[in-house]
Simulated scan of single mutants.
Amino acid sequence: MAYRQTPAVEARLQDNRSRILDSARTLVSEGGWREAQVASVAAAAGIATGTVYRYFPSKAELFAEVLSAVSQREVDVLTEIAKSDGTAIVRLHAAVGTFVRRAMRNPRLAYALIAEPCDREIDEARMTYRAAISEVVRSIITSGQLADEMRSDVQSDIAASVIVGGFMEGLIGPLSPLSRQQNNATDIYRHEVAILADQIALLACASVAVSSGPTR
């Protein structure tokens, strides 16, 4: 007879897995990919290092899943904005601005997700994430083109790739651990983030907005 895990065992295994992922995410938030070692994750989760490898065969696979889980939440948030009421320009501005503000809530984690050098498996997960973000932006642009709210002389997929690449590139400096970071609980920091989010969103919208004059 094949062994079947009891509900209690299954719950314990799932709890271990969740604790590993939560601990890994916290460590990445504090020091990026390089500082988050498997032994440190195990210690933070209160389990043996060997137990981590029971769930994740390698460090790269563990952190690729961390990236995927965190990134999916961002994709979900932007998808809801894309489906909301309002013109395409309003939704695009909201989507880009929201992405920037959410990234700046946890700059170290966002830098790891967007730009920090990493293992191939992690980078592949990062590319999947960027493609998903681009697809959300493409859907907004397509709806704007159909409603004559956005330029029809550009392909929506190309425009989306340029916009996503642009706002992620625009975040690298502000997110970088080498840049001066203020306490994100201060009014000054929140004001600067609001300006950053609005500026990046305005530039993204300007690239696809219908112009009153001829385009080249």
Rank of each mutant, 00 (worst) to 15 (best):
E121C: 03
A69W: 11
H93L: 06
K59A: 09
A185R: 07
R190D: 08
H93K: 13
G86R: 04
V90N: 15
P7N: 03
R25A: 10
Q199W: 09
I158R: 04
A125G: 06
G170Q: 03
F63S: 01
G46F: 09
I158M: 06
Q199K: 15
E116R: 02
V70Y: 09
A132T: 00
A43H: 09
I195E: 12
V52L: 06
V137R: 01
T128P: 00
L13Y: 10
D85W: 14
L171M: 09
T49N: 13
Q182A: 15
E74G: 14
R17H: 09
I89M: 10
E61I: 07
E30Q: 11
A95Q: 03
I122W: 03
Y129H: 11
A194K: 02
R180D: 15
V164E: 02
I163D: 03
N183E: 14
E121P: 04
L178Q: 13
A204N: 02
L109A: 05
T186D: 12
S176D: 07
C205N: 01
T26K: 12
R12E: 08
C118G: 14
V28R: 04
F63G: 01
A88Y: 02
N106Q: 15
A45R: 05
E192S: 11
P57R: 06
I163T: 03
A209T: 15
S176C: 04
R4D: 12
D148C: 07
I163S: 04
R138T: 10
T142G: 01
Q5D: 12
I20W: 08
